[in-house]
């Protein structure tokens, strides 16, 4: 649930990085955290097990500056990708306004990517949301491994497996080197803020049309 605070003149949106275990969600947040100046970010909160796997979520609040005089504040969350954390993933999705689906380019992770996208779809359904409607961007990660002679899925294969019908924007990335990280963030932020603003304007217009309680 986005929050529009007219007192502090801020819009708060929640963007969730989703995807299978070890695909690089936490790596995205760490890169963003290290790359932007302290003025534009809050504390990075991580809840992880000892082996650096996300146990509950990571959270990085960032500030994107002003649009129409309103400060845009975005909370970036990651979910725990390991399959047995399904209940936890659903909790983290609560109130989501936009989604980055990070897919693992490793060929052997092909099924995991597909499973994770299906899991996302099912979890959204429980909040009456669907993938076709909510702002969504794909990130095909670990493209740097092309040069390491490790079998990777091609972009065409990834597109065909995950994005054939959704036709959401996608970015190739090597999150560990920061490649594609900000392109992904910019696109999803733009779409999410637009979506939240449109819903707000629409609800206002509707209230007026219904006799103007607002």
């Amino acid at each position: 649930m986005a929050l529009i605070d007219l007192n502090r003149r801020e819009i708060h949106c929640k963007i969730v990085y989703y995807g299978p275990g070890r695909c690089g969600k936490t790596t995205n947040l760490f890169y963003i955290y290290n790359a932007i100046s302290e003025k534009y970010r809050g504390k990075l909160l991580t809840i992880e097990t000892r082996g650096e796997r996300t146990l509950f979520f990571d959270l990085l609040p960032i500030n994107l500056g002003k649009i129409h005089g309103l400060d845009i504040r975005i909370q970036l969350y990651t979910i725990p990708g390991q399959s047995h954390y399904r209940a936890t993933r659903k909790l983290v999705l609560k109130g989501v306004d936009g989604i980055v689906f990070v897919a693992d380019s490793l060929r052997k992770r092909r099924e995991k990517n597909i499973e994770s996208l299906l899991d996302l779809r099912n979890n959204l359904k429980e909040y009456n949301l669907n993938l076709e409607e909510i702002p969504l961007v794909f990130q095909y990660n670990k493209r740097d491994l092309v040069s390491a002679n490790i079998p990777l899925l091609t972009i065409e294969e990834l597109e065909n497996d995950l994005n054939r019908e959704l036709k959401a924007p996608y970015f190739e990335a090597a999150a560990i080197k920061g490649i594609g990280v900000f392109d992904t963030l910019k696109e999803i932020s733009k779409r999410t803020v637009k979506y939240v603003a449109r819903k707000y304007v629409f609800s206002q217009a509707q209230a007026k049309a219904e006799g103007g309680i607002i």
């Binding site: 649930m1 929050l3 605070d5 708060h12 929640k14 809050g42 504390k43 909160l45 509950f56 979520f57 959270l59 609040p61 909370q75 909790l91 983290v92 609560k94 109130g95 989501v96």
Partner: peptide, 28 residues
């Protein structure tokens, strides 16, 4: 706070308390 973990309003002594993290953790 709301259940997505946003701070709607805070009252009292916030000194040294990271309310953003607190709200996210409380909601979770």
């Amino acid at each position: 706070i709301d259940e997505a973990g946003n701070v709607i309003v805070a009252a009292g002594n916030e000194n040294g308390v990271d309310t953003t993290s607190l709200a996210a953790l409380a909601a979770a």
